[in-house]
Write a protein that binds this DNA or RNA. Sequence first.
DNA 1: AGCCAGATTTTCT
DNA 2: GAAAATCTGGCTA
Length: 209
Amino acid sequence: MADPSARPHANLKIRRLRRADLPGNTAALARYLVGKILVRDMARGRLAGRIVETEAYVVGDAAGHAFRGLSRRNRSLFLGRGHAYVYFTYGMHYCLNVSSERPGIGAGVLLRALEPLEGLEAMARRRGTKRVLDLARGPGRLAQAMGVGPEFDGVDLCGDGPLWLGEARLPRFRVGSSVRIGIAKETHRPLRFYVRGSPFVSGPKRLNP
DNA sequence: AGCCAGATTTTCT
DNA sequence: GAAAATCTGGCTA
């Protein structure tokens, strides 16, 4: 697992998560999703990765995209937990969130990094690199590796669609927490969660003890 | 390992 | 017009 060239988790049995499996609280969901699996099924095969890093953007959070209310861009955050919110940023990157509260309440969990499990060749093609450590380390890279763009904004990740959340039997791990990355407001809240010791986690070393 | 500049365009002030 | 939940490549601030 720590060796990026190894693929010990290939050919996993992955079970779809149901909405009832998801905690109904944003910070709890962010922690819960660490260690779960993001799957994209395509005609040519499957892309899958273990979620190793998340951030919670909670209700009333000035750093959250829903802070100033519903808009065309952020409407998917208000769909009720388990839906995709895909946004475009910095002129060239998409990022994927999981909406996290009841319908009508805007909040979400940003998926920041994956440990690639299946479809590494396809991910490498989309990303333009063969370095496994660079396939999905960071939210923009994650979306690009999984082929997630605006067409997935608002889709139900707990439905029967091609993009979904799952779980599988994986070795035990510990979850660490830290402040969030890349924001200018609410910078001291410990709402980032990650797999301790994983080389697939983004961010500076001081945030990944 | 860590810091910096530049890329590039949507969204909201 | 400014900021933005980022990434890449180059340099060592």
